[in-house]
Amino acid sequence: MKYTITLGALAALSLAGIAPSAAAQGKPAAEKHHMKPMHAMPAMKAAPDPTTADFEKFREVLEDDNPAELFEQKGKELWTMKRGPKNASLEQCDLGLGPGVVKGAYVKMPRYFADVDQVMDAERRIVYCMETLQGFKAADLAKKPFSSDSSTPDPVSLTTYVAGQSRGMKLAIPQKNPKEREAFEVGREIFHYRAGPYDFSCATCHGEDGKRIRTQVLPNLSSKSGAMAATQGWPGYRMTGGLMHTIQWRMNDCFRQQRFPEPGYVSQTITDLLTYMAVNANGQVYKGPGIKR
């Protein structure tokens, strides 16, 4: 690593932070983490194993410098910018607390929206607003809905912004409307539905405490703490590859590994599954967009 530093007029400049911060975010560091040998080989009890404990420490250090904030910032820009065929901003988008109210909206979704007579999760609602207010086509947004090396889709940045506006607030997913309760019940069924060539359901991996796939700890999504752990981290900046992902991506990739066909982007299936998970986490504090290995 080469640093040519020219000191300016302000005499004492310390570079404390440059090397550690830069390295901490770099791929080599992240890989080292993966390769770190687990101690106590036989009869490993999971949660919290040494690898995870190490990563948790690492994440605490990074929390204040989470690159997710770059996407929050980008999302805020996109929210207020006049865009799309209708040349409108999203400032009239109703996320459930009235048109334009973003603060605190994320921790109350998925929720019932009377204008569509449906329950919608955050990203689904944002895409709906992009369609109705700005004139974007849902089919176009669904073509490449997930972040890649070359691009971060707008709904990802927007969802990250909206999520950031609920930082530090308690999760309060409403269950008053019959459709909201129905979404929870249907979501629970989707969660437990075993099918496909591997006989997997979501619950096969995420229905018990303290289990791991390889070294990755699996949150038990049917429990309060597990559901929170899962809800907490999304949207999340993944250091492997340096990509910003929302929970829509997480659900999609889980179904891929479940050996199912592909769920539609921002479909009702995903909303209902998210309702089940988020209601299980109700009452706990949402810390905002996370950072993941």
Binding site: V186, E189, I190, Y193, F260, P261, E262, Q268, T269, I270
Partner: peptide, 16 residues
């Protein structure tokens, strides 16, 4: 609810 869930998945998923 299970029947509803399965019908919903059949509507929302596509082969890939």
């Amino acid at each position: 609810y299970r029947a509803q869930a399965v019908a919903m998945m059949k509507r929302d998923f596509h082969a890939k």
